Simulated assay, not measured.
Amino acid sequence: MDEEGRVKYHEQEGYPDDPAERTIAGNEHVNRARRFAKYWVYRERGYETLEWRHNPNRITAAAMAIAPLTAEAAAEYLGDFTQQFDHIHGDAEPAVSVPDEIQPADAVYQKDIYVGFEDQALGSLVGDLLGNDDVMAALGRVIDPTTARPDDAAFSAALAEITGKDPADVPNLSDGCLLEAVSGLHVHWDDAAGQYHTQWGEQPEIERDPHARIEIFEFDPDSIVELKCQIARHLLCQVRDCYLGMGIAPPEPFRLLGAGHHGAGTRYEHYDFYDRYHDPTAEISTWYEEYTPENAYDTSLAEIKS
């Protein structure tokens, strides 16, 4: 390490030190080791070594804030997705104007999520969530559009207990009291030359990083509740991608199939040592349990504040 805490050089025998001398797959293996090292320092010492979009604790907190929303609250926070998709599939006014060159099916629609936990330590919160069977069982119902209800009382009650909310405030969890703010819609696309572009939506006046960024392709949900369920599941798939990107297995609740991080889906498409975790119909051969340290999910040590 240098004096500013950056990795100056490292020693290992598995791959050439010069990235130019490695294979593409070799570079990905080295990148996985780097991601895991950053996660381990964060988990053990609480330093902010993880970029916010790849911090599984922060993304889990965002999913837990989105999942119990009522239809009315989901429309307030996520309604611009619905409006944009209704424009693509019908005659609604667009929520955002996009360049003519963009094909709707090729664009990624994004939104930043800010969660407020009144200085609750994210590591402790996520550890409590994962250790609560009622929360995880209710979460499974909430992210399944075929069984989910707009307000899952068991999920809200368990979250109220974990976050220290007064039981009288339980309905507020479904109204979005765990959400501090959301951004406007961002539109992300690549052009004919393969260059990526992003049209940024309006950001709230909050002087800190978001907890997560939704990254979804357009689809035609039957209702705002189905959209909310799919977004909550999408965020949990992002958590899955964080762990797989470190070369270790995600915790059991996050072993889901479906689109998570846009960049992770690209890796799953191009590296033969990854299964197609982004494909809901894929058959999975490995979750990398054999490479996962015994205490890899002990999140209570990380004291990063929201």
Score class of each variant (00 low, 15 high):
Y271V: 01
N132P: 08
S300H: 12
F155G: 13
P56H: 09
D17R: 13
E118L: 10
Y277I: 14
Q12T: 02
M1Y: 14
S300M: 12
A302M: 00
G260A: 10
H261K: 14
C242H: 08
A148E: 07
E215T: 00
V126S: 13
G79R: 13
T70H: 05
P99Y: 06
A154F: 02
I231T: 05
A259D: 00
E226I: 04
P104N: 04
E218S: 05
V98C: 08
G184T: 08
G260R: 10
D100E: 15
D2P: 06
G46L: 04
L78H: 08
S223W: 03
A193D: 15
S300A: 09
L122E: 11
Q84Y: 00
D241K: 10
D133E: 15
L139Y: 15
G184D: 01
G263E: 13
Y47F: 05
K38V: 03
P293C: 01
F117L: 15
A232I: 11
H234Y: 07
F254M: 01
C242Y: 02
D191F: 04
S223Y: 00
M246T: 01
R43F: 00
V126Q: 05
P167A: 13
R141D: 10
S300G: 05
A92W: 15
T281W: 02
A296N: 02
D298S: 08
P145S: 00
E283Y: 10
D2T: 15
A33M: 06
D128A: 11
F273N: 04
I304A: 10
F36H: 10
R6Y: 12
G263C: 12
A74L: 11
D222C: 02
T70K: 09
V7C: 06
E28G: 01
G5I: 10
H29K: 06
N172Q: 11
A154R: 09
A302Y: 03
